[in-house]
Simulated scan of single mutants.
Amino acid sequence: MSDKDPGRGSPGDEVVRERVVPAALAGLRADRAAAELLPEFSRAQLTRWLREGALTFDRRGLAPKSRLVGGELLRLQVSLAVDRGLEPQTVAFGLCYEDDDLLIVNKPAGVVVHPGAGNPDHTLVNGLIEHRPALKTLPRAGLIHRLDKGTSGLLIAACNERSLKVLTQAMSNRVIVRRYQAVVEGQMTGGRDIEAPIGRDPRNRLKQRVREGGRYALTRIRLIERFRAHTQIEAQLATGRTHQIRVHLSSIGYPLLGDRTYGARGVLPTRPTQDLVELLRGFDRPALHAYCLELSHPRDARKLRFEAEAPSDFQALLSAIRRDRETEE
């Protein structure tokens, strides 16, 4: 395994990555395997580089849909140009920590992380570039993971190529701890591990589902507090699949409150007040907040832990269902 490290990066920097395809990825398409091995780049970028010949396996160009057998040498050699489409824009977000190597960002609910179909600008990436223009030279402005639009909380952004390499490897090795607070519909009786593969829903390409042949996924659930018709939980990601927490909780019959995409039905306790009905029915996003990150600093490996208080709508939700429980006791 090797990486050419160009430091902070500048337009035209040559980036070189080499990875050996492990046996666990045998049978995967070339584009999917590349996305697993080089998570700092988007799948769209990697697919484009496959087609252009900048990304090879055993020094041969492959079509994105080609299947791998394992043991191949992946090699990426590309000039990383600035994406002129990413313009600095003022976007609301908080900062929990900042230095020359690392940003810990607190994303509000409602902010899209990076540009895509239907969201060409005014994303968190645009806001990060406004805050620190040098991030424009890094894939996704240095962000090493993402949160859904409706999810609030903490994200990690690398500030240079060296940090990006270290942090993406740490994420790939599953040594970065990510914990979430959530409110689900129904009364859970206790914590559990949800270990079930996740893949794209064949009937709706915008959704994921638990399915045979999907990618391995593990979510650890801990019960925090039970209410009359809901439960507050902590969810810790052991893997990082798209919509993982939402899909896993829905699959066991406890969808996130407000997550209509994955089965939330607007459950109410018996004899609710009108105020509670309006609050629960009006909560129009998944009740999910990424509240805690634990990681090693990419430069000196010192241990870091960050927590972010839940946003006001989440706290108001908890206060309301707690008050309802106490009134009925």
Rank of each mutant, 00 (worst) to 15 (best):
H145L: 12
L154Q: 14
M188H: 11
N204A: 11
E185R: 04
V175S: 12
G191Q: 14
K165A: 06
G186E: 00
C159G: 02
L164W: 03
L138I: 06
R226P: 07
Q208I: 05
D201E: 06
C159K: 09
R246N: 09
D201P: 02
H145V: 12
R228C: 12
R220T: 14
A134W: 00
R146C: 11
E234Y: 05
K207N: 08
C159S: 03
Y180N: 13
P133Q: 07
L147E: 14
G142L: 09
E195D: 14
R209K: 14
Q187V: 14
K165W: 04
L237A: 03
N204W: 01
N173W: 03
A134D: 08
A170G: 05
R174H: 15
R241M: 09
D193M: 14
G214N: 00
C159E: 00
D193I: 13
Y216S: 07
R209E: 11
R220H: 15
R222C: 03
A235D: 04
P133E: 08
R146N: 06
V247L: 04
Y216K: 10
L135H: 06
V210Y: 14
A238M: 13
R215I: 03
S163V: 02
R220M: 13
E225C: 10
K136F: 00
R246G: 12
A238C: 08
R226V: 02
S172E: 08
K165F: 04
M188V: 05
R192G: 09
A235N: 09
L206N: 06
L155N: 07
I194E: 10
I144K: 07
P197D: 08
N204C: 13
H230S: 10
T242K: 09
T219L: 01
A158W: 01
E234S: 09
R211A: 14
D148T: 06
L155V: 14
E225Q: 12
E161T: 11
A170P: 02
R205L: 03
Q181F: 06
G186V: 00
S152I: 10
R241P: 11
R200C: 01
V177T: 15
K149R: 15
A182T: 01
R205G: 04
P139E: 03
L223E: 09
P197H: 12
A141P: 08
S152K: 08
R246P: 03
R192Q: 14
G199R: 13
G240K: 05
P202I: 13
E234W: 09
Q208T: 04
G153L: 15
G191P: 07
N173S: 08
H230Q: 11
I221T: 00
L167W: 02
R211C: 15
R226H: 03
